[in-house]
């Protein structure tokens, strides 16, 4: 693949990932909302879908960073921040602690994603 073509494809991927970041932020808040409203079963179903979407996001992100880590340092920082929050999420999920799940989704993950795509946004 020629460099110019590769660059275009990588940029396209970045754009897609950034769109996904916004969607993931909204979805994380929605799932947190369901859990807080007491719609636990719906919330947990939603969470499963969100986690699958995160897996796709990370696969794309890993590809981008592998192809050109230097150009996408800002995404590497986001990846690091998100990865630091997942253990909290899995721990809460394992304990069935829906309150903490909603907290992590809303105040940690959604905020981290929103800080990236809409810096300075006040929730």
């Amino acid at each position: 693949m020629e460099n110019a073509t590769a660059r275009i494809l990588l940029e396209e991927l970045r754009q897609r990932l950034e769109e996904l970041i916004r969607t993931l932020a909204t979805a994380s808040r929605e799932v947190a909302g369901l859990l807080q409203e007491g719609a636990v079963a719906r919330g947990l179903n939603g969470l499963q879908e969100v986690l699958e979407a995160f897996q796709h996001f990370h696969r794309g992100l890993d590809f981008l960073l592998l192809a050109d880590g230097k150009s996408y340092m800002f995404l590497a920082a986001l990846k690091e921040k998100l990865e630091a929050r997942y253990p909290l999420l899995y721990e809460a999920l394992e304990a069935g602690d829906t309150v903490t799940l909603a907290d992590v989704l809303s105040y940690e993950i959604a905020e981290t994603l929103e800080d990236y795509c809409c810096p300075g946004k006040v929730n």
């Binding site: 409203e37 069935g96 309150v99 903490t100 907290d103 809303s106 105040y107």
Partner: peptide
């Protein structure tokens, strides 16, 4: 030994409003 929170560790008042809005 399983532990869980009864209310949000960030903003329990906002969480309660959300529950009631449902």
């Amino acid at each position: 030994g399983s532990a869980f929170l009864l209310h949000s560790a960030y903003d329990p008042e906002a969480e309660a409003e959300r529950l009631v809005a449902g």
